[in-house]
Design a protein around this nucleic acid. Structure first.
Lengths: 196, 196
DNA sequence: CTCATTATTTAAACTAGTTTAAGAATATTG
DNA sequence: CAATATTCTTAAACTAGTTTAAATAATGAG
C-alpha cells in the first residue's frame, strides 16, 4: 500500500503512465526496521536503496578518533543510501541506523539496474533527483561556511521542525558540526533571549 | 577540435556509438573567456553549462558581509555550472569567473533539453555524473567536519597539485573555509616542520 | 517500579581559527 | 619601467567553539 506514496513522489518529478508507475514500484519491497537496527555498517557494501515511508534514520560516519558525525537524517519521504557504495559496490564508510521503528521501500542494486533498462525514463527521474541532490549538498556546504553555529541551528529547526522533534540534541549537534555542550549553550542563550 | 576531449570524457562514463557521440558534441560550442571575465554573476540566470578544456575558473558566493567564499575551482576536464540555476532557470547566488584565459565547451539550457530528447542515453550519462557529484560533495562535507584546517590543506594540495599552482593562496584559504592569514600560518608551520 | 544507561546542562580552562593592522613581496597596468 | 594594486606574511589581541568534568534529567530494560 505504501507503493502509492512512492508513485506520487516519482510522478512529481517525471510524469509516468500508470503502467510505467506500476512497473517501477513493483521493484520496491517493503522492509521494516526496528529502532536501533542498522541497515548498513561501515565496511559493508550497501545493497539496498530505500525510500522512507515511516520512521527516521541517521546516516553517519565514525571518524578515526571514534566520534560519530551525522551526515544527514532521513525521515518520511526521504531516501537512505550510501550513493557511492551502492553505485560502485565498494565498502561503505557510513553507518545507517534506524532511530525509530521505521518502514522503507527498498530496491537492490541489481534490480535498480534492471529498472533503468525496463523503464528508461527512470534514468531521467534519477538524473533529476541527483541533480537536485547536488544543489542541496552545495547549499549545505555554503551554509556551513557562511553561517555560525547559532544561525545553523536556527536554520535547522526552521526547515526540519519534524526531525527536530524526532532526534536528540546530541545528534542535531553532530549534524551541525558542533559539540552537544555548545549546542546546549546556544539553546540556553536563545531561551533567555526569547523571554526578554 | 576540443570536441574529441569531450567525447573521450563522456565515453568513459557511458559507451556511445560514434554517431551518438557526434550528435552529442554537436550541441557543444567553443567559448573563449579572458582572465577576469565573469560567465555568471549573482542574480543572473545561468544559461550555459560548460566543460573546461583550457584554463581555470572559480565558482564562488558573496556572503552578506561581502566576503567571497570559493565553492570550487574548475580547471581542465571539469564542469562549470550553477546546477540549481541552470536546471530551474532561477536567479543564481553564485559568481563564476575565469582566473586564467580559458576555453570552454558550452551548451545552453534549451539545447541540453533537446539533447536529452535526441539521445536518451544522455540521461544515463548525466544521471551517473550527478550521482558521482553527490558522492563527492558528501565527502567534501565529511572532510570539513572531521579534518582540521591543516589536514584539509594537506589533502587539497595532494589531490589538486595542478590547481594549487594555478590559484592564489587567498583563494585556496577561501575554498578550505579559513582566512588567508591562518593559511599563511599553516604554511609557515609546515615549512618549519619539513626542514627539521 | 527500579536500576542503569544515556542525554542534557553547566561551568571553567583551553585551543583552533579570526580580526586587525602593518610591512614585505609579487603582479598588473599604463 | 615606474606606479599601483594585490597578495602574502607576521604578530598580538580576540572569540567561537572544544574539552573536561560533574551534576541533573530523561529514558529504557527487566
Amino acid at each position: 500500500m505504501y507503493h502509492e506514496l512512492l508513485k506520487a513522489y516519482f510522478n512529481k518529478i517525471v510524469r509516468f503512465t500508470p503502467n510505467e508507475s506500476d512497473a517501477i514500484v513493483r521493484y520496491y519491497q517493503e522492509k521494516r526496521v526496528a529502532k536501533g537496527e542498522f541497515i548498513l555498517r561501515k565496511n559493508e557494501v550497501f545493497r539496498l536503496e530505500g525510500y522512507v515511508v515511516e520512521g527516521c534514520f541517521k546516516v553517519s560516519i565514525i571518524d578515526e578518533k571514534g566520534n560519530e558525525k551525522v551526515l544527514y537524517f532521513a525521515a518520511r519521504d526521504w531516501w537512505v543510501m550510501d550513493i557511492d557504495s551502492f553505485a560502485n559496490q565498494t565498502a561503505s564508510s557510513l553507518n545507517i541506523q534506524a532511530i525509530e521503528d521505521s518502514t522503507l521501500l527498498v530496491i537492490s542494486r541489481d534490480n535498480k539496474e534492471r529498472l533503468y533498462n525496463e523503464v528508461p525514463k527512470v534514468e531521467r527521474l534519477f538524473r533529476i533527483m541527483y541533480q537536485r541532490a547536488v544543489a542541496a549538498w552545495q547549499k549545505r556546504l555554503i551554509r556551513n561556511q557562511t553561517m555560525n553555529a547559532e544561525e545553523r541551528y536556527q536554520h535547522f529547526i526552521t526547515i526540519y521542525p519534524e526531525i527536530t522533534k524526532q532526534v536528540t540534541n546530541k545528534l542535531i549537534a553532530s549534524y551541525l558540526g558542533i559539540t552537544q555542550e555548545f549546542l546546549s549553550m546556544i539553546r540556553r542563550r536563545r531561551s533567555k533571549k526569547s523571554t526578554k
